[in-house]
Amino acid sequence: MTTAPQTRYQRVTLEMWPLVAAICLLAALLWSGSLRTVSPILNVIASAASEPNFYSSALAGVGVLAGGAFAHWRQMRRQSWRGFAQACGSGLWVPMLASALLGVAVGNLAWGWTLASGAWQPLFAPFVSVSPTVVLMFGADVKTVLTGGMLGGVVTPPLSVFGASVVCPELGVPPVVGVTGGMAVAAVVAFTVCRRLPWLSELVRRDAEPTPAVAEKYGATWVLRRSLADFSEAQFFGSEWASLGLIAGAVVAYLLNPATPAYGSGLLPQILAAQAITAIVGVVLWRRRWARSPFYPTFVPIVSVAPACVLTYGGTPASVLAGALLGAAVGPPVAAAISARLPAHFHPFIGNVTAMAVVTSLIVPPLQLLPGF
């Protein structure tokens, strides 16, 4: 990445911070109509940041946002201990976050009525799908941020809601299959629309930051760092600092009230255990693929197969190990294979969420035929 683009994106970053704050406040006021009732709405937005990991906790959401902000601050100043580059190494973390937050706000405003029955609905979906990837594909200007937020909020929630609430019960598969499948379909629709928008005429692709020598990067320390960073990769953060904030927030929420995170299941410890195992096994197993390319989707089972298996089978030791090991072995190569075959105007995340849906549906339901499930 050359010096001039970095300077420009640092300037855009500073200009975007007020937009991030304005999106949160405006969404809260539109929902509530009063400053005194803003807190519950901000809680919804914060929870959306942790829901891809099955935590659904405002404290975990605040943790991942705070950790991401700290990592971004260190990365922009090229300071030590800055961790892996966020936002796919583009330097666009702040405008990406602005679009993601706007997507959640728009999605809840447009589709919040689906919560009337009291049932859970995946209205967090724009945060980790269409909204941020439009920025990653087309750049950091305000028009792109607004386009990503609006498209993500309008298109993604209904498809994910339909998948989780209608398709999954009929097929007998975990809800994450419908959520991620809805994200994939929504992304195809959204990026097809983007190709026809005159202000999004040029694709902007940026490679990850240059990497050090293989011997230095891919040792035991790197394995632990990469395993930790994968906890926040679904949010396009992919930073150790963001992941530490995410996990710390979830643990604090659990200690305060075990019924708060993990959809009231009380299974947060088992989910974290499964995710930690699948993260380490996946990175170790596919480390050579990381050595040959800037990115490899080892995070896929962390936010799909592993936690879905725990919730489906009650957190038994067998469900923790089976979901973690099978997910680590199958999820990443399937995601990489699908992403490699996508057209250039589709962001590779489509391959990742498609793989989450396919692999989860193939692994989790058949396990009920085995002893211990």
Score class of each variant (00 low, 15 high):
residue 14 L to D: 11
residue 15 E to I: 00
residue 15 E to T: 06
residue 16 M to A: 14
residue 20 V to K: 10
residue 20 V to W: 09
residue 20 V to F: 11
residue 24 C to M: 14
residue 25 L to T: 08
residue 25 L to M: 09
residue 27 A to Y: 08
residue 31 W to I: 05
residue 33 G to D: 07
residue 34 S to R: 14
residue 38 V to A: 15
residue 40 P to M: 14
residue 43 N to P: 01
residue 51 E to H: 06
residue 53 N to L: 14
residue 54 F to H: 12
residue 61 G to S: 05
residue 73 W to C: 01
residue 73 W to I: 05
residue 74 R to C: 06
residue 75 Q to F: 01
residue 80 S to C: 01
residue 81 W to T: 00
residue 83 G to M: 10
residue 85 A to E: 10
residue 86 Q to L: 04
residue 90 S to R: 10
residue 91 G to F: 02
residue 96 M to D: 07
residue 97 L to W: 03
residue 101 L to M: 15
residue 105 A to T: 04
residue 107 G to R: 12
residue 108 N to W: 10
residue 108 N to G: 09
residue 112 G to T: 02
residue 116 A to D: 15
residue 125 A to W: 04
residue 126 P to W: 07
residue 130 V to C: 03
residue 133 T to E: 13
residue 134 V to M: 06
residue 140 A to K: 01
residue 143 K to Y: 12
residue 145 V to W: 03
residue 146 L to M: 13
residue 146 L to P: 01
residue 147 T to V: 08
residue 147 T to S: 11
residue 147 T to L: 13
residue 149 G to C: 09
residue 150 M to N: 02
residue 155 V to M: 08
residue 155 V to G: 03
residue 167 V to I: 15
residue 168 C to D: 14
residue 169 P to D: 07
residue 169 P to V: 12
residue 170 E to H: 09
residue 174 P to M: 08
residue 180 T to A: 05
residue 181 G to D: 11
residue 183 M to P: 12
residue 189 V to G: 06
residue 189 V to M: 14
residue 190 A to E: 09
residue 198 P to E: 08
residue 199 W to K: 12
residue 203 L to F: 07
residue 207 D to G: 14
residue 209 E to S: 07
residue 212 P to R: 01
residue 216 E to W: 01
residue 218 Y to Q: 07
residue 218 Y to R: 10
residue 219 G to H: 03
residue 220 A to Q: 07
residue 221 T to A: 13
residue 222 W to V: 00
residue 225 R to Q: 15
residue 225 R to C: 08
residue 232 S to L: 03
residue 237 F to E: 01
residue 237 F to M: 12
residue 241 W to C: 00
residue 244 L to Q: 02
residue 245 G to W: 06
residue 245 G to S: 05
residue 245 G to Y: 05
residue 247 I to C: 11
residue 251 V to D: 11
residue 254 Y to H: 15
residue 257 N to E: 15
residue 264 G to E: 13
residue 265 S to C: 03
residue 266 G to H: 13
residue 268 L to Y: 00
residue 271 I to N: 02
residue 271 I to G: 05
residue 271 I to W: 07
residue 272 L to A: 11
residue 275 Q to V: 02
residue 277 I to F: 04
residue 278 T to Q: 13
residue 279 A to P: 01
residue 279 A to Y: 06
residue 284 V to S: 02
residue 287 R to K: 12
residue 291 A to N: 03
residue 293 S to I: 00
residue 297 P to L: 06
residue 302 I to W: 02
residue 303 V to D: 04
residue 304 S to Y: 11
residue 306 A to C: 09
residue 309 C to H: 01
residue 314 G to T: 10
residue 317 P to N: 12
residue 319 S to P: 11
residue 320 V to N: 05
residue 320 V to F: 00
residue 326 L to G: 02
residue 328 A to G: 13
residue 330 V to N: 04
residue 332 P to A: 10
residue 343 P to V: 06
residue 348 P to S: 09
residue 349 F to K: 05
residue 354 T to D: 02
residue 355 A to G: 11
residue 355 A to F: 11
residue 361 S to P: 08
residue 370 L to S: 08
residue 373 F to T: 10
